[in-house]
Simulated scan of single mutants.
Amino acid sequence: MDRQRLDKWLWHARVVKARTSAAELVASGHVRVNGVREKSPGHAVKAGDVVTIALDRAVRVLKVTGFSERRGDAAAARVLFEDLQKADE
């Protein structure tokens, strides 16, 4: 798998608790892919894309590093992205 729907990836990466929440987050304009605001939950993300999420008065900047067929536990979710903010600190 080299691409995945944005809403599905956000859910699998455990950014949100439900896929519908991921879709609403994208549709309401709180997600950017490579600096461009994305309003389509079905937008495909690929490895290397930088996803910026405005969530709960905070901004998360994540680099897509992998995909999953199913939603796993927190440890499995951590391998799907690299947190670019922690790298800056």
Results as ranks from 00 to 15, higher is better:
Leu80Tyr: 15
Leu10Phe: 07
Ala47Ile: 14
Gly29Ser: 06
Asp73Asn: 10
Lys39Asp: 13
Val36Gly: 10
Ser40Gln: 14
Ala22Glu: 01
Ala75Tyr: 11
Leu80Met: 14
Ala22His: 04
Arg5Ala: 02
Leu25Phe: 09
Thr52Gly: 01
Val26Phe: 10
Asp56Leu: 15
Val36Phe: 14
Leu25Glu: 10
Leu84Pro: 05
Arg71Pro: 12
Asp83Pro: 11
Ser68Phe: 07
Arg60Trp: 00
Met1Ser: 09
Gln4Pro: 01
Leu55His: 02
Ala77Ser: 14
Gly48Tyr: 11
Arg70Val: 03
Glu38Phe: 01
Arg71Gln: 10
Asp2Arg: 07
Val59Ala: 07
Glu69Ala: 05
Val50Met: 08
Arg19Ala: 00
Ala13Met: 08
Ala27Tyr: 07
Gln4Asp: 03
Ser40Ile: 09
Ser40Thr: 13
Leu84Asp: 08
Ala75Val: 09
Ala58Gly: 03
Arg14Trp: 03
Leu25His: 12
Ala58Leu: 03
Arg71Lys: 14
Asp49Trp: 15
Arg60Ser: 03
Val31Gly: 10
Arg37Val: 15
Lys86Leu: 13
Gly29His: 04
Ala13Val: 08
Ser21Tyr: 08
Val51Cys: 01
Leu10Ala: 04
Glu89Leu: 06
Leu84Ala: 09
Phe67Val: 12
Leu62Asp: 03
Arg57Ile: 01
Ser68Trp: 08
Lys86Gln: 12
Gln85Met: 02
Ala23Arg: 14
Val26Thr: 14
Asp88Glu: 13
Val16Gly: 08
Val79Phe: 15
Gln85Asp: 05
Lys86Thr: 12
Ser40Asp: 13
Val79Ser: 15
Ser21Val: 10
Arg78Leu: 12
Lys17His: 04
Ala75His: 12
Val61Tyr: 00
Ser40Leu: 11
Pro41Lys: 12
Ala18Val: 13
Arg14Leu: 05
Val33Leu: 14
Val15Met: 06
Gln4Lys: 04
Lys17Ala: 10
Thr52Asn: 02
Met1His: 11
Lys63Thr: 10
Glu24Ala: 12
Leu62Cys: 05
Asp7Val: 03
Val64Gly: 07
Lys86Gly: 08
Gly72Gln: 15
Arg57His: 08
Asp49Arg: 12
Val33Asp: 10
Ser21Ile: 10
Val31Arg: 07
Val61Ala: 01
Phe81Tyr: 15
Gly42Trp: 05
Glu24Cys: 05
Arg32Phe: 06
Ala27Pro: 02
Asp49Leu: 14
Ala54Trp: 02
Asp2Gly: 09
Lys86Arg: 11
Lys46Phe: 10
Glu24Asn: 13
Leu62Lys: 02
Ala44Ser: 11
Leu55Cys: 02
Phe67Arg: 12
Glu69Arg: 10
Phe81Ala: 03
Val36Ala: 15
Glu24Ser: 11
Asp2Thr: 08
Val36Cys: 13
